[in-house]
Each structure stands twice: as structure tokens, then as C-alpha cells.
């Protein structure tokens, strides 16, 4: 379980991105919504233990991450993966990129290759494996980044606007994959503008505004809201 206690984050340039946020990630899928600049990305990076809060604590399974030693931090970080909104791929081929998380975890190269190949097959991007980052479309890059993130089977998968660049076909692949992983007890935190995605996937929705939690609701409520909006439109 990831838990934030009174987390405040101020960027070095003085901008307050998160203001005294306390929350627990317990559900299989948590959706974070909010306007641009409301602190979604910062929140995800704090949950991913990439940013150290200016104040407050980040507890992973009850342990305060930022007071742990290097070895323990590494162990915890390997349970959590964060996928950037604009995927950052490394130099080298797509396959090499997808093998990276396995290689750094000291897997044997052959084994890593096998695992990576099985992931690309499931995601339907096998034809891309020998391409390099400059030869990919934005949607393809996003799929590769997704494959790379889950190849080492982390417990928590934190996604920042995952479906932005995807067409409906690819979106479906990703959503199905998420549902499959949820069945395997993996947990997702997804920041998105996409209300439909939120409605389809989520069991819990956190709304952020100016670095604060505006409210926490369930997807059923959202679904009802969307329906009512659609209904109203029909009437008028």
C-alpha cells in the first residue's frame, strides 16, 4: 500500500504543486483527475518515489520511503513503475528498451529477451522490435513505454495520461491489458483527463485542484454524472 501523509511539494523555483495531501492507494485502480497544473504529475511522481516531498511522508507498505537506505529504496522502487505522459525511450532498439528493466534487475540477457518478446506479442507490437525511437509514432512509443514498464511485473503501475496519443484500437489493447493485470492483483494509478476512461476503469476517483484533493468519489458516481449530462443534452 502506498500512503501519503500531509505531503507538500514545492518546486525549486518556488511553485507549490501539492499542498498537504493525505491519501492511501488501496484500490486496484485509482484515477486522478484535475485541470492542467492541478498537481497530477507531481502527485504521481511522489507516489512513484521519484520526487522527495518538501514536507510530509511517503509510506510504502507502512515504511517511510525517504528514511530508508539505498538498498531498501531500490527494492521498493522496483515494485513501482511510472510511465511519463510523453514516453522517454532510450537509445537503441525497441526490444532493447523493453529488456532494460530486466537487465538492470540482473536477469540473463536471453531470459530478458524471451520475456520482452512475449510482452510485445501480447501488445501486438512485435513488428516494432527492431525500430529505434525516432522511427516510432507517438502512439507506438506509448505502447513501447507501457510494455517496458510492465515487463518486470511491478506491483504498482502509475500512468500519466496513458491514452492520449493512442487511437481507439491501441487504447482497447491497453485497457484490456490493465484489466488483465488488475486480475493479477496489480494496482494502477492513472492520471487522466479522459472521463470515459475513468468511468470505465475506476473504482475510485481522486479530483485534484491547485495541489489539493477536491474530493474522492467512485466511478459509479462519475458514470451517473456523465449519464445525467448526456441525458440533459438530449432533452435540450
Amino acid at each position: 500500500m502506498i500512503e501519503l501523509q500531509n505531503v507538500t511539494f514545492v518546486y525549486p523555483n518556488g511553485i507549490l504543486a501539492l499542498d498537504n495531501v493525505t491519501l492511501k492507494i488501496t484500490d486496484e485502480i485509482t484515477i486522478i483527475m484535475g485541470a492542467n497544473g492541478s498537481g497530477k504529475t507531481t502527485l504521481l511522481k511522489i507516489l512513484a518515489c521519484l520526487y522527495k516531498p518538501t514536507r510530509g511522508r511517503v509510506l510504502i507498505d507502512g515504511r517511510d520511503f525517504w528514511v530508508l537506505n539505498k538498498k531498501e529504496r531500490l527494492k521498493i522502487r522496483r515494485k513501482i513503475v511510472y510511465i511519463h505522459e510523453n514516453p522517454v525511450l532510450f537509445r537503441g532498439t525497441v526490444l532493447e528498451n523493453i529488456m532494460y528493466p530486466l537487465i538492470v534487475r540482473d536477469h540473463h540477457v536471453e531470459e530478458a529477451r524471451k520475456k520482452a518478446l512475449s510482452i510485445v506479442e501480447k501488445l501486438g507490437i512485435k513488428h516494432l522490435i527492431n525500430r529505434r525511437r525516432q522511427e516510432l509514432s507517438a502512439g507506438e512509443a506509448q505502447l513501447v513505454a507501457f510494455a517496458r514498464a510492465i515487463v518486470a511485473d511491478p506491483e504498482y503501475i502509475l500512468m500519466d495520461e496513458p491514452t492520449n496519443a493512442l487511437d481507439s484500437e491501441k487504447r482497447e489493447i491497453v485497457e484490456n491489458f490493465i484489466i488483465q493485470l488488475v486480475k493479477k492483483r496489480r494496482k494502477f494509478v492513472i492520471a487522466t483527463h479522459d472521463r470515459l476512461l475513468a468511468a470505465r476503469l475506476s473504482s475510485k476517483i481522486i479530483e485534484l485542484s491547485e495541489g489539493k484533493i477536491l474530493r474522492i468519489s467512485s466511478s459509479n458516481e462519475l458514470l451517473a454524472k456523465i449519464k445525467s449530462i448526456l441525458f440533459q443534452k438530449d432533452e435540450s
Binding site: 521519484l50 539505498k70 534487475r105
Partner: peptide, 23 residues
């Protein structure tokens, strides 16, 4: 970019440094 990605993909500090150097 690269440092954060390397870390979140499970690299330790030295591996992340190396990835950054490579990039």
C-alpha cells in the same frame, strides 16, 4: 528524462548514471 525513467524502471543509482551517460 532519462534519470527518472531509469530509476522508475528499476535501475540502481550506478545503473541510472550509466544510462544517463549512454544517452
Amino acid at each position: 528524462e532519462y534519470w527518472e525513467v531509469a530509476l522508475t524502471l528499476g535501475a540502481d543509482t550506478y545503473q541510472a548514471y550509466r544510462t544517463m551517460l549512454r544517452e
